[in-house]
Structures are given as structure tokens and as C-alpha cells.
Design a protein around this nucleic acid. Structure first.
Lengths: 152, 152
DNA sequence: TGACTCATGTCAGCATTCTGACATAGGTTG
DNA sequence: CAACCTATGTCAGAATGCTGACATGAGTCA
């Protein structure tokens, strides 16, 4: 619109590109999940529970990259609507292991398929080799950012 | 905490890994920007203006991956606090070209250095070749997700 | 010229997520 | 055992970003 290249490196910054890709992925997921009446966080919670039954609220929060307070709000809604069950008493400690109900599992099926198709579209232009490279590169970035390698 | 590997593919999903990396990057940026009293969106806006002076509110919003309404609220605050100036009248159309004030430029300096150090840390474990690969791969993902290649 | 379409700036209301705080359960350490 | 530390679930308030809506300016096209 305004001008073209005053000339710095937003276009060459991997950080910016990472944010751009993540934003595009999120938008694409929202687009396919909206018709199913499901938000990305909503889907993430169900998918996590399908793959790792018995996760606690805090564990789900970490897996979905939100705070445990946020996840708690969502879990209470999912429980109220019958997608998820949690025992009234904690079997050990305070952690309440959550599980999908049959209704939750059913509702996840369509969403999961939709999201997998988005992921497939995302990877459509990449060779197997490139996908493997992407995997290693992203893991390295995460590792470095979290500072897993410093300190003792 | 609960169990280890019930066993599906969250650990092998590039979509999940992308979200994880983006989340780690955002957290690292927030960590270094907080001492400077600056949020990520706040920083993004200033950095965009430094690199592309004269961007309009809507263009800044697209560049920072937020809606133009959200960017407008931020811009008004930045203008009120003297980091940014916009003309009272649009030179053409309705778009108001925004520019950094000296104060805005000064405030950006430290933030920009901090963010660049985060990006450097993110890339620390990667070779030049891998960084080039990451660039091409991320661009391909963005391109595919946006569906630039379909239709006419 | 006039109707149409599109992008923009902006206001208002709503949704989502976060920060802060508290009580409790369990493990650790002296 | 007692003090301490960490993790958890949960409530309340605040911040942040979004959707909806409206008016305006510019280009397009008949």
C-alpha cells in the first residue's frame, strides 16, 4: 500500500516468520473448527485427553500452552456439557484425572479429522526430508529458547 | 506426573511443534520485554514503524497479526504517550501514516536489542544451512496454509 | 455522473486469557 | 516430627484482543 522496501529484515527474521506461520496455522484451524462450534483451545483439550487419558487440569494447561486457570474454566464448561468427566475426589494429591466421555470422543472425531487435514495442507509442499528437517529444527529452537542447556 | 507414553502423535505433529516453538518464542520475548515495560504487541508496532515508516493503522495490524481495532487502541496510547505521531488529516484516503518520534525510536533501541538476542539464542544450535532450510520450510508452510496456490 | 465495491478509522460490547491470591496435598529435609 | 517447598485446584478482578457496526474516502464500471 504505502511503500515497498525501506529495507530491513522483518522479511529475513526467522522469529517473525515463525510467528507468521503459527498465526497462519491458528487461523486455518479456527476456520475449520468454527463450523463444528469448537475453538482451538477447546479442541486442544479434547485431543490431549484422547491421547493421554487421565491428565490433570494443570497438565492439560501446559499441553495446550495456557494457564491452569484458563484451562480450569474450559474444563468446567466441558464437564458441565458432558464432554469430560472428573472424579469428585482426587485419587492422590489434589490432581483430578480427566477423561473423555463417549460424547466427548464422538465430538472430537470430526474436529480431529479437520485439523489433520489442515496439517496435511500445511505440509503439502514439503518433501519427507524437509519435514524431518523441520522437526529437528523446531525442536532445537524450543530447546534453545527454554534454556535447557544452561546452568548445571 | 501421571503416565508416560499412552502413545500417539502429539510428539510427532509438526503443527503441535510449531505452536510449541511459537509459544516458547513469545514467552522468551515477554521475559526480556517486561523489564522494559513493553508488551510483545507494543514492541511489534514500534519495530514495524522503524522498518517501514508511514505504515497505516490497518497495515500495522496486519504486520503484527492483530485486528485493526486492537492496533488502533495501542496506537492511540502510543500517540498519547509521545512514541508515535500521526497527521490530523489523511494525505490521501483515510489512511493515517504513522511515524516514530525520537522518543519512540529511543525506547525501541533497547527492546530491539533484547529481542534480537532472543532470536540469536533461538538459532544458537542451528547451522547456517539449517537456518536457510528453516526459512524455506516456514515460508512454504505459510504459503500452503493461506492457500495462495489454489483457485485461478 | 451515479451505483457499487472495497479499505480504512473508530466506537462499543463481548470473549478469552492472564495475574493475583488462597487453601490444601505430598514430598523433602533438618 | 516439624518446617519447608512445590504443585495443584479454584475464585476474583484486570487486561488484552476480538466481533459487530458505522461513516467516510477512493477506485471501478455501466
Amino acid at each position: 500500500m504505502s511503500q515497498e522496501r525501506v529495507g530491513v529484515d522483518l522479511e529475513t527474521s526467522l522469529g517473525y516468520l515463525l510467528k507468521e506461520a503459527s498465526s497462519a496455522l491458528r487461523a486455518a484451524m479456527e476456520e475449520v473448527l468454527r463450523p463444528l462450534g469448537m475453538s482451538v483451545t477447546h479442541y486442544s483439550c479434547l485431543e490431549l485427553l484422547a491421547q493421554r487419558p487421565g491428565l490433570s487440569n494443570s497438565e492439560l494447561a501446559r499441553g495446550a500452552f495456557v494457564t491452569r486457570q484458563t484451562m480450569n474454566v474450559l474444563l468446567q464448561a466441558l464437564e458441565r456439557d458432558g464432554y469430560v468427566t472428573r472424579p469428585a475426589e482426587a485419587p492422590v494429591g489434589k490432581a483430578l484425572p480427566a477423561r473423555l466421555t463417549p460424547r466427548g470422543r464422538r465430538s472430537l472425531e470430526k474436529a480431529s479429522a479437520a485439523v489433520r487435514s489442515v496439517e496435511a495442507r500445511m505440509l503439502a509442499g514439503l518433501t519427507e526430508t524437509e519435514q524431518s528437517a523441520a522437526f529437528r529444527i523446531l525442536q532445537s529452537m524450543i530447546h534453545s529458547l527454554r534454556g535447557d542447556n544452561e546452568g548445571a
